[in-house]
Amino acid sequence: MVARRFVVPVLVAAVMAACSSPPPPPPEPAGPTAEEIEAARQDSIRRAEEAAEAARRRAEEEARAAAERAHREAVAAARAVLQQMVFFDYDQAEIREDAAESLRAKVGILRASPQVQIRIAGHADERGSTEYNMALGNRRAEAVKAFLAGFGIDGSRFTVVTFGESQPRAQGSTEEAWAQNRRAEFTITAGADAINPAN
């Protein structure tokens, strides 16, 4: 661009000079040659193309990164869904509706992630017999396993353990604390790097 802007006023000046006064000595060629102009033109085109290519690559990379980020977020979300606890009613091992929803969300992920294995830990609140609560925790964990297996997930992908009332999440002898403590927890024991979001 710079070269062309320079060339035009020089030519105009030369023509004007030729029309008025006695012809001066033929001017020394003041501008670039046509070859030079063409080279400059080609050069500028090439640079523009390079810039465009870089922008395209950048955009592509950004898109790839965004996709990767989105995937990672989806995997993280899937992992969080897999690890999401479910809660139970007092002295019950039945799967509540809110728990069923959470477990159904796990099913799709487990189907898409066949290498993933999970340990289901059943817990109880502090009320009632400490030893019998071991059985209650086990029944809760087994109920969760049976629910997931009911959706066709291979039961051998789960191990079950009961902690009874020994590992409360919430301290205190209140309804709120008890509700937090009647739960099943999920630990990914294998395939943690092969989690796929549900299809």
């Binding site: 002295d91 019950q92 091992a93 017999s129 030893e131 019998y132 059985a135 029944r139």
Partner: peptide, 11 residues
Amino acid sequence: YTTNRFGEYTP
């Protein structure tokens, strides 16, 4: 021993 063979909620 404790058993709940008569029902899950009645040891």
